[in-house]
């Protein structure tokens, strides 16, 4: 015999105060990394360098190169609204950036990034060829 547990719904309140420039940047078509005068670069961006200094915000521009990708067919809950999606990691200079691509990009392809809302209304990073 199997019985059911009481339902527990989890939806969290996430503070992105220290990285607000990134989240606002997405809405304006800009993607930021952070750098520190000690020489470290961060993507995902963070306000605190591990050396103890505060980092500075720098926009990621230019061309990236695809290092790996996948196409997710078995979707997790929270993504029921999506058709199978392509996740890509591309290298832009000293950082690597994750994003989605609607084009069939492969390892070694040159890509550029842009921002747009996805089907659930969340602003995120996308890649296109060239």
């Amino acid at each position: 015999m199997i019985i059911e547990s009481r339902e527990l719904r989890l939806k969290h309140r996430i503070p992105v105060v220290k990285t607000e420039k990134f989240w606002k940047g997405l809405e304006g078509g800009r993607v930021y990394k952070t750098i520190c005068k000690c020489g470290r670069s961060y993507y995902p961006p963070r306000a605190d360098c591990i050396c103890g200094n505060q980092t500075e915000w720098v926009e990621i521009t230019g061309k990236g190169v695809v290092e790996c990708f996948t196409v997710v067919y078995s979707m997790p809950s929270g993504y029921e609204w999506s058709k199978p999606y392509r996740i890509v990691v591309a290298r832009f200079g000293d950082v690597r950036v994750m994003g989605w691509s609607e084009e069939d990009v492969f390892v070694g392809d040159e890509v550029s990034l842009y921002t747009a809302k996805d089907g659930s209304g969340i602003w995120k990073i996308w890649f296109r060829k060239g």
């Binding site: 996948t70 997710v72 994750m98 994003g99 492969f106």
Partner: peptide, 28 residues
Amino acid sequence: GNYLWEHHFYGTTFPAYYAMHATAHMAR
């Protein structure tokens, strides 16, 4: 992995993480 910067935006799954290693390994 990291919910905020990866799963939240891009719907990474456990198979997806290893699949990305597979495409890199196949290409190289």
